[in-house]
Computed example of a mutant assay.
Amino acid sequence: MNTLEERQRQALGQIAEIKRISCAIDHALQNRTPAAVLVTSALHGEGKSLFASALAATTASLGKHRVAVLDLNWYRPSVHRCFGHELNQPMERIIQADLNELVAKNGDQSPDLLVAPIDHQDHTKMNGDVFGVVNRLIEQAKKSYDLVIVDSASIFPTNRMMMDPVMLSGMVDGVVMVVQTGVTPKQQVKRAYTIMQAAGANVIGVTINQHREPATKQ
């Protein structure tokens, strides 16, 4: 099999797996609509933003739900790159405006997108009722969409600006944790899961990223 065929086969397999996960999330939430799902991970760099983007895009393409993806990882935003968007709005506007004025609308069977603010690195602007701002954005999204995918920061290191997944978990209907197999220490995954459970989060699943089947002995 040539390289192109291998890539095509891999892509089809990934799409099929994301569809399966989408159906599993629907089942875990008892087909509740609207619903908001938080995607997080124990550590940075486990592929959660790519997973959140793929989940939103694939679920929207099925045509059963109106889908929005909110990038609330304002420390290391990357969802915009997954969709070929630029950061183009200041934090002040995102904090003050209604969600419908902020999202990039991508057309039928594609998710709408709220990207992080262009000045996301200036954490001094996040002083104030961050909890209230984020909760308002999620609640507004649930009024306009059937499924809201929220990409958040990793659980570790602890977020000092109250924009962490533990806080966000109380604003959503379910949490999915992404684990990069063979990279993330098991004790970190267990610790992260325990913290989310202790906070009352509804952890509906853990998805393994970059899973590889054991090599077959010749």
Results as ranks from 00 to 15, higher is better:
N2D: 15
E6F: 10
E6R: 15
A11T: 12
G13M: 07
I15R: 15
A16E: 14
E17A: 15
K19G: 04
S22Y: 08
C23M: 03
A24K: 08
H27D: 11
N31E: 12
R32L: 09
R32T: 05
P34S: 05
A35Q: 06
A36I: 02
V37H: 00
V37K: 00
A42V: 08
G45L: 09
G47V: 04
G47Q: 12
K48S: 02
K48P: 05
S49R: 02
A52H: 01
A54K: 11
A56M: 12
A57Y: 00
T58M: 14
S61M: 08
G63N: 13
K64M: 03
A68M: 12
V69W: 04
L70D: 01
D71A: 11
D71L: 05
L72S: 00
Y75K: 08
P77G: 07
S78C: 02
H80T: 10
G84L: 13
G84S: 05
E86D: 10
E86P: 00
Q89L: 15
R93W: 12
I94A: 07
Q96N: 13
N100G: 05
N100F: 09
V103T: 12
K105Q: 13
N106A: 12
S110L: 05
P111E: 06
P111Q: 14
L114T: 12
H123W: 04
T124C: 03
K125P: 00
N127I: 06
G128E: 06
G128S: 02
D129K: 03
V130M: 07
G132W: 06
V133F: 00
N135I: 03
E139S: 10
K143N: 13
Y145N: 08
D146Q: 11
D146C: 11
L147N: 01
L147G: 00
V148R: 02
I149H: 08
V150M: 04
D151P: 13
S152Q: 12
S152R: 01
S152N: 06
S154L: 13
I155H: 03
T158F: 09
T158W: 02
M161Y: 10
D164P: 01
D164W: 00
D164T: 00
D164V: 00
P165E: 01
M167G: 03
G170H: 11
G170R: 09
M171H: 04
G174A: 05
G174L: 06
V175Q: 05
V176L: 09
G182A: 09
G182F: 12
V183E: 09
T184V: 14
K186Q: 01
Q187W: 15
Q188K: 14
V189T: 13
K190P: 00
A201P: 11
T207D: 01
N209V: 05
R212V: 06
E213P: 03
A215Y: 07
K217S: 04
Q218T: 06
